[in-house]
Amino acid sequence: MTHDNDRENRPHLRLVVNNAEKRNPRPSTSEDDFISFEELATKRDIFRPEFYQDMDQLQKNVYEELERFLGGKGWPYGLDPRHGRLLVLPAGVVCPETAEHGGTQQDEILVYVAEDVTGQGLCLSLEMLLPYYSEDEAVMEDAFLYAPVNQYGTLFLEENRHDSFLDLIYRLALPLFPPDLTGKLLDRLFAIAAYELKETLRGLAEYPAG
């Protein structure tokens, strides 16, 4: 039951399309239009009213703190109100080693806020679809088993909605309220993500993709 609630709270769509060029072209079953990161970033002020429209005040406080934090860092980011209210960053900004292990400029890190599965607070999640892909499910399952076990973040396999193949995804989650979100907590969150993504990508680089 907890797993089902978790899946309902996760925005899936953007994760399964942001690495489309790595796959063979296949028909998309989705009617939703993908918005490029460049458009999300350049039109951030235009998308912001839609992004925050009718949002719970606690969630709004978290996203506003995230925006202040990223603005202070000088990191590029976009607001995607169409695919689950996602804050989108280039993966290379958070983890520069991404490019050394098969990543491209299209790889993204998604940050979003959802209700905690207990219903007693919020959960801040950071996710990345890893630049590792094979049409052979056995290869993906073996890679999942071979990948490093992280101290904080987790890896999981999820079926791609557009082509039914498997994606390998990294997720780091932080419970909120309590505690309140602060710049120090966000510094820690992104530092952990950068380290664990680097170690995960390094481990996967030693495992041959199909």
Rank of each mutant, 00 (worst) to 15 (best):
57 Q>D: 12
96 P>L: 05
31 E>W: 06
72 G>L: 06
99 A>Y: 05
52 Y>R: 05
68 R>I: 00
66 L>F: 04
73 K>C: 06
63 Y>D: 02
43 K>L: 12
67 E>A: 01
98 T>E: 12
83 H>Q: 14
59 Q>S: 01
72 G>E: 12
97 E>D: 14
33 D>F: 10
52 Y>F: 15
51 F>K: 01
41 A>Y: 09
99 A>C: 00
44 R>N: 07
97 E>H: 09
34 F>Y: 11
53 Q>M: 08
89 L>R: 03
80 D>V: 11
51 F>L: 11
98 T>P: 02
45 D>H: 13
56 D>L: 07
63 Y>M: 12
31 E>I: 06
98 T>C: 06
87 L>N: 00
41 A>T: 01
78 G>F: 04
77 Y>P: 01
76 P>V: 07
83 H>Y: 02
50 E>V: 14
72 G>D: 10
37 F>G: 04
32 D>E: 12
81 P>S: 04
65 E>Q: 14
93 V>T: 15
50 E>H: 12
90 P>S: 07
56 D>C: 04
59 Q>G: 05
32 D>I: 11
46 I>H: 11
55 M>P: 02
32 D>K: 15
30 S>I: 00
47 F>E: 01
79 L>E: 01
89 L>D: 06
59 Q>A: 02
66 L>I: 08
70 L>S: 01
68 R>C: 00
56 D>G: 03
53 Q>A: 10
95 C>N: 13
51 F>R: 05
54 D>F: 13
91 A>F: 05
57 Q>E: 15
93 V>A: 10
58 L>F: 14
64 E>N: 10
41 A>C: 07
41 A>P: 03
92 G>P: 02
74 G>W: 01
65 E>T: 15
85 R>E: 04
52 Y>P: 01
37 F>H: 10
54 D>K: 09
61 N>T: 08
81 P>H: 02
35 I>A: 04
63 Y>H: 10
77 Y>H: 09
88 V>W: 01
82 R>L: 11
90 P>A: 11
67 E>G: 02
50 E>I: 14
31 E>R: 14
88 V>C: 05
87 L>S: 00
61 N>M: 13
83 H>E: 09
63 Y>N: 03
62 V>I: 15
88 V>E: 00
